[in-house]
Amino acid sequence: MTGPLERLGRWALERLTALGRANLFLLRLLGALGFLLRRPGLLVKQLYAVGVLSLPIILVSGLFVGMVLGLQGYANLVYFGATSSLGTVVALSLVRELGPVLTALLYAGRAGSALTAEIGLMKATEQLASMQMMAVDPFARVLAPRFLAGFVAVPLLTAIFTAVGILGGYLVAVVQLGVDGGAFWAQMQARVLLWEDIGNGVIVKSVVFALLANWIALFEGYEAHPTSEGVSLATTQTVVVTSLAVLGGDFLLTALMFGVW
């Protein structure tokens, strides 16, 4: 009779404990960031690994997403003779939603999973323990540079994704389908607001998603069971949990942006 209740209670307790550990992990991570002032080279190396190496997937995806938006928008707006609004449609979709959300999802798949696997394997092969035994704090030496690099990279990648997406929309709408180029840019300029749209979308959302994606990736790697199965599970968890957190967080942030709550 109490079996399911007991299991539910145990599951809830385990989740709550994990959430507590994740918060303590984040606090320790933030406390270790000061170390990077002395060793900026570690940050630069990680910026290359998580940021620069993520550029190809971000550029190609951004271009395709923008091109699809241009096509879909044109196919519908043409019935109303409103194709001149295409620039606004493409830009608002990218700036408010698709840019930050898709960048975070792509980042979780490309860089987040790699971070989890790397940290998990370092744990499994006792590299983190050996660092501790050499009196080197892995939070400062290994985790903090990766966290800060990811935190800086995601907003920049979002801005690049959005810009390339708009370019993709322009190529399809103006170059291919013959929409007036002046109207495309002028409507966009008139309707896309700096703080309300770009500030809330590209900046606020991407910063929140950057925090979530890197926090989850590093925590999952650090908590991974030190076995091949454990690392594999942690890597999957990173992609699943980050995707859900980003989509759920996007809903909350959008509701706040529109003043629903």
Binding site: T125, E126, Q127, A129, S130, Q132, M133, M134, A135, D137
Partner: peptide, 18 residues
């Protein structure tokens, strides 16, 4: 950490940084 600077440890796997 100060004490550990005076202690070395050889792990079973070697635990070299790959």
């Amino acid at each position: 950490y100060q004490l550990r600077q005076r202690m070395g440890m050889l792990f079973q796997s070697g635990a070299l940084f790959t």
